[in-house]
Amino acid sequence: MQGNYGKLLKLLLPVIIIENFELTSYKTTSEVMHLYTDKGATLALVNSNPWPPSSTGLKGTNDWTQLSLNFNSGTTGIITISSHLGYTNTDSSGTAYFDNLTIVPQ
């Protein structure tokens, strides 16, 4: 993905309720800048929370780097995961690619 905000990936997945999981993926970035926080390119668990839990962000130019996010699936039995470049349409720029997305129970 290039330019301002977009989801590289957004998946709606059925999961076991009230279970702990680890989400991992590899990302590579080029000239990623984030204006307001340290986010940049991240993995996130998208839910009704206005600030969904997310991994550490990658900013700048990085070779393939593994990102991870630990979370609890909650009570709905469905989660939405995404691979972000920023949070809004004006807060990030650059290029990010992802590969090897995995989700495993803990």
Rank of each mutant, 00 (worst) to 15 (best):
S93W: 08
N89K: 07
Q66H: 04
T80P: 02
A41L: 05
T61I: 10
H84Y: 11
N49E: 14
V46P: 00
D99F: 07
S55D: 02
T90D: 15
S54E: 13
T102Q: 12
F71L: 01
D38C: 03
G60R: 01
P53R: 00
Y97V: 04
S93V: 12
L35S: 14
P53C: 00
G57F: 09
T42K: 01
N70W: 10
K39T: 08
T95I: 11
S68N: 15
T61S: 13
S73D: 05
T61K: 04
G94M: 03
L67C: 06
S83V: 13
T42W: 08
A41M: 06
P52M: 03
N100E: 14
I78R: 09
L69G: 01
S68T: 12
T37M: 11
L67M: 07
L101V: 15
Y97F: 14
L35G: 14
W64D: 06
H84S: 06
L69Y: 07
S92W: 00
L67W: 08
Y36P: 02
T56I: 14
I78N: 10
S83F: 09
S92R: 00
S54T: 03
S92T: 15
G86T: 02
T75F: 11
T90A: 09
S92G: 05
L45S: 07
L45F: 11
D63N: 13
L43A: 01
T65V: 15
G94F: 02
L58M: 09
S82R: 11
D91H: 05
T65H: 09
G57M: 05
L58P: 00
T102I: 08
Y36G: 06
I103M: 13
T102M: 10
T90F: 15
D63W: 05
Q66A: 09
V46G: 02
P53F: 04
T102E: 09
L67N: 04
T102H: 08
G60Y: 05
V46H: 08
P53M: 01
P53H: 01
T61H: 07
Q66V: 12
S68L: 11
T80C: 12
N49W: 06
N72L: 07
N100W: 07
D99P: 02
L101Y: 09
S48N: 14
G94D: 05
T76I: 09
I79H: 05
F98S: 10
T37E: 13
A44Q: 11
F71C: 01
S93C: 04
L85I: 13
L35F: 09
T37H: 10
P53I: 08
D91C: 06
T37G: 03
I79E: 01
A41E: 04
K59L: 15
I81Y: 09
T37D: 15
I103G: 00
I81R: 05
G60W: 12
V46Q: 11
S92E: 09
T42N: 07
A96R: 03
